[in-house]
């Protein structure tokens, strides 16, 4: 397993995919900071040229970051079936389950490194270019990402599982979107008519990731209430276990 992880890290380090993806994410965030700083410089009364706004904004788009886990899963998966590279690993004595688990570990390592690098560049550029609104906004933003990391892990895991089971990144993307976007939407609609679906709706990772709840007029992250925290742990962990089991059983049966 360790050798497999080493080889996969070597491959990813020598391919441009992750660098391009991380570069685009960091580049867009830095560009946002530059634009805000420029407007603030032009108009000193501009209200959004500070770290409070940008950290809050990036916190609000956590749902979009969750969707981006598909890209990370697909990048790490490569095109194992189309390129027949997985066949080499199996022919050299690796079990398909080991390959699957190895990919998951590698994808988590790569995701953490990429996210850390993008966040570091974004936060650094925000402090460098914008007005400092104090540490509270930064901590809230970081805390929310950390809390939602269960969903981010689940998103990457699901993307990889769908890649392994379908054998193609395109099909995996559609399945992922169906599970995390279309299915919650259908459940929400059914929830308008049937109470069961209304309850289920509140427990789906696709709806929960990055969402907020209101206490009075104040919006807080969903997991900051006891019920929300319970939902985070249950929906986060259950999804991880379900997709992991599905992946292990699926790759065991799959032939090349």
């Amino acid at each position: 397993m360790l050798n497999y992880i080493k080889s996969e890290l070597y491959r990813i380090a020598h391919q441009e995919g992750v660098y391009v993806f991380g570069g685009i994410c960091a580049g867009l965030l830095v560009l946002m900071n530059i634009v805000l700083a420029w407007i603030k410089w032009e108009n000193p009364t501009f209200r959004y040229g500070n770290t409070w706004f940008v950290f809050g904004f990036v916190d609000d788009v956590l749902g979009m970051v969750f969707v981006m886990t598909i890209i990370m899963g697909c990048l790490v998966f490569g095109d194992e079936y189309k390129d027949r590279t997985i066949g080499n690993s199996i022919a050299f004595g690796d079990s398909p389950v080991m390959v699957y688990l190895g990919k998951i570990i590698v994808s988590l390592i790569v995701s953490v490194i990429t996210l850390a690098a993008v966040v570091a560049i974004f936060v650094g550029s925000a402090y460098l270019l914008l007005e400092d609104s104090g540490p509270a906004a930064l901590w809230e933003f970081l805390r929310d990402y950390l809390a939602n990391s269960l969903f981010l892990v689940q998103g990457v895991l699901a993307a990889l599982t769908f890649c392994f089971l379908s054998g193609s990144k395109g099909a995996a993307t559609w399945i992922w979107l169906a599970v995390y976007e279309a299915f919650p939407m259908v459940v929400s609609l059914l929830g308008l008519k049937f109470p069961f679906f209304s309850k289920l709706d509140g427990w789906l990772a696709g709806n929960l990731a990055g969402s907020h709840t209101y206490i009075g007029k104040e919006a807080i992250a969903f997991w900051q209430t006891p019920e929300g925290l319970m939902k985070l742990l249950v929906a986060g962990c259950a999804g991880i276990v379900i997709f992991l089991l599905l992946g292990i059983l699926g790759v065991r049966r799959k032939e090349l």
Binding site: N3, Y4, S7, Y10, R11, Q15, G78, D83, R84, G87
Partner: peptide
């Protein structure tokens, strides 16, 4: 087996290095 399978964006040397690491 059938046609040889490799990562298209890695060089010939990097592909072999990848499998060298994998096979220890």
């Amino acid at each position: 087996i059938e046609a040889p399978g490799f990562y298209p964006k890695l060089t010939a040397k990097q592909n072999l290095e990848y499998y060298r690491l994998q096979r220890g």
